[in-house]
């Protein structure tokens, strides 16, 4: 049933310009971050690590969470419009399968975006003549960021389901990202799903922000994903059709 639901979600996304956002938005940090790196070589130590800090400087802090939010809001917008909600509520499909299918599609969207970020990072490094292969830690940070995206996707799917508006959950993710800079600075990053993205991607830091804290990080990611996944299922079970 889950596979069938995922296939349905995929069909709903056909001809959507969501993929354009997924491809276009990471181009900005890749191009501009690389030029910024080249322009500041007097201050920065040349190397892959500093190129990474320049490319993830704003992407992880401000824009990756709204990007996930955009995808989640779009997935639920289809249900909120044209009386589709009633069709959803009366469909012979278990609620958990609907929620999990949307989560799988949102996570796949972010996974592809992160892969694209990684490819652009490697390509931009090679284009400016960076020597040697990229450090494995950076690929690890990309993976950690992707996992944190699962927590953000779960939270945003819940918000987009509960708020019948396309734009409000996106602005909430943006505000959440900005607020999370303060939360991270206070050392409370594990309490915010948006801060997990920053910690995971090691945004604008040379030293590992999760040194010795990988397990608490993974636990926080799993905790947010499970909590908001369950909340979504319970909420959807209790919600009635809209006459």
């Amino acid at each position: 049933m889950l596979i069938r639901c995922i296939r349905t979600e995929n069909k709903k996304l056909k001809h959507s310009i969501l993929w354009l956002a997924c491809l276009a938005i990471p181009l900005i940090p890749a191009v501009m971050g690389t030029f910024n790196y080249l322009g500041n070589l007097e201050i920065l130590t040349p190397g892959w690590h500093n190129l990474w800090t320049q490319e993830t400087l704003f992407y992880a802090n401000f824009f990756s969470a709204p990007l996930v939010a955009l995808c989640c809001a779009y997935l639920w917008r289809l249900e909120h419009r044209n009386h589709n909600w009633n069709a959803l509520m009366t469909a012979p499909v278990p609620v958990w399968a609907t929620v999990l299918a949307k989560f799988a599609v949102a996570f796949r969207f972010f996974l592809i975006t992160q892969l694209w970020v990684g490819i652009l990072f490697l390509a931009s490094g090679k284009c400016i003549g960076m020597e040697g292969p990229a450090p494995v830690e950076i690929l690890g940070q990309l993976l950690r960021g992707t996992l944190a995206g699962a927590a953000v996707a779960a939270v945003q799917l819940f918000l987009s389901m509960a708020i019948p508006s396309f734009t409000l959950p996106v602005i909430l993710a943006f505000i959440g990202s900005i607020g999370s800079i303060y939360v991270t600075a206070k050392g409370l990053g594990f309490l915010s799903p948006y801060a997990l993205l920053m910690l995971g991607m090691n945004a604008n830091h040379q030293e590992n922000m999760l040194e010795g804290q990988l397990f608490p990080f993974l636990a926080a990611v799993a905790g947010f994903a499970l909590l908001f996944g369950l909340l979504s299922i319970i909420w959807l079970k209790k919600k009635d059709i809209r006459a």
């Binding site: 959507s16 310009i17 276009a24 900005i28 940090p29 704003f58 824009f63 955009l70 917008r77 734009t167």
Partner: peptide
């Protein structure tokens, strides 16, 4: 589709800051 204007807004924030 309101997705497109929002994507433009997000790109705008990003491009404006980086520029």
């Amino acid at each position: 589709n309101q997705l497109a204007p929002l994507v433009v807004g997000l790109i705008g924030s990003f491009a404006g800051l980086f520029s």
